[in-house]
């Protein structure tokens, strides 16, 4: 067999982790319409928080992933506060800048391991058993599904409506009584939290992390996942992650020219299919829904 189970487990775990990060971006950008070109920074905050909590403070993975979620939530809220007065391209530039700042903080402060990074990040344990290999993959996908359910829940609540109102028309949103400052901060914080959880999963999977794992190109990678899959749906983020992770595996010889590939993909998608392969109004998703509804006898029934 050409594909070993270890290889498959690795790919699937990475797809789940970046799927979570892309899901977060879909909330910040797709739902609330707030441009974020620095999602990798939040993946980094989560990864660092999780690594430091386990390696330096000997906390368990389960405690660490909660800390990672909290740390990135707060980092996202901080960026949200800064972003209140910014829109569109100024916001985009600010989020890129934020990504660079976070990476340089990781590099120049010994606390974050500097240029050596942090090594020896332990695998999680459950009931005394270490979770490795395929079990880790299953754990990652379970977390992904839980967070997808949370995203779905947010969609159904007032919070989700407020996000979409903010995206569709900020001026009208604020004049129908939506405190746009609050929801902008929340949009960044929640999206960042997803990134942080993704970072924690990646850190404990690889066992070591270094500042460059969270550099700006990774933000673009996560962005291209969102764009390819579809920014306004949950399944879009996951499918986008799978495609962007698998494509370079197929085109391995491209090596460091992968950035060109991501960029080309973004440009082509925006030109030919701006709503993404599985965006809310894409024919693929509509027919997929129809099939699912036929299967399930139409549980959703609208």
């Amino acid at each position: 067999m050409p594909i070993s189970t270890g290889y498959a487990a690795t790919l699937l775990t990475v797809i789940a982790a970046y799927g979570i990060a892309a899901l977060g971006l879909n909330i910040t950008m797709g739902r609330a319409g707030q441009v974020n070109l620095g999602q990798a920074a939040f993946v980094g905050v989560g990864a660092m928080a999780s690594a430091i909590a386990t390696v330096r403070y000997s906390l368990s993975f389960w405690e660490a992933i909660i800390i990672a979620a909290l740390a990135s939530f707060l980092a996202g809220a901080a960026l949200g506060v800064v972003s209140i007065r910014l829109r569109e391209d100024f916001l985009a530039i600010t989020t890129i800048g934020f990504n660079f700042i976070v990476v340089y903080v990781f590099l120049y402060y010994k606390f974050f391991g500097g240029s050596y990074g942090i090594i020896g990040i332990p695998k999680p344990t459950l009931l005394g058993m270490r979770i490795t290999g395929f079990a880790y993959t299953i754990m990652s996908w379970t977390i992904l599904l839980l967070l997808a359910a949370l995203a779905l829940y947010i969609d159904k609540t007032w919070l989700g409506l407020a996000f979409e109102a903010l995206r569709d028309n900020e001026e009208v949103a604020e004049s129908v009584g939506i405190d746009v400052r609050k929801y902008k901060i929340l949009a960044f914080a929640i999206g960042a939290m997803y990134g942080g959880v993704a970072g924690s999963i990646l850190a404990h999977f690889k066992g070591y992390i270094v500042y460059s794992d969270f550099a700006f190109p990774y933000s673009i990678m996560i962005l291209s996942m969102s764009i390819v899959g579809g920014m306004d749906t949950i399944v879009g983020a996951i499918v986008g992650s799978a495609m962007i992770i698998l494509l370079p595996e197929i085109f391995r010889p491209l090596m460091e020219y992968r950035m060109i590939m991501y960029t080309a993909i973004i440009v082509l998608m925006l030109y030919f299919k701006p709503e993404g392969l599985l965006g809310r109004e894409s024919k693929w998703l509509i027919s997929l829904r129809r099939i699912l509804r036929a299967w399930s006898g139409g549980i959703r029934g609208d």
């Binding site: 007032w158 409506l161 569709d168 028309n169 009208v172 949103a173 129908v176 809310r280």
Partner: peptide
Amino acid sequence: LFPYLTVEENLIV
């Protein structure tokens, strides 16, 4: 309006 919200969602907002 909020173009990508449904009529009812517009009202709920």
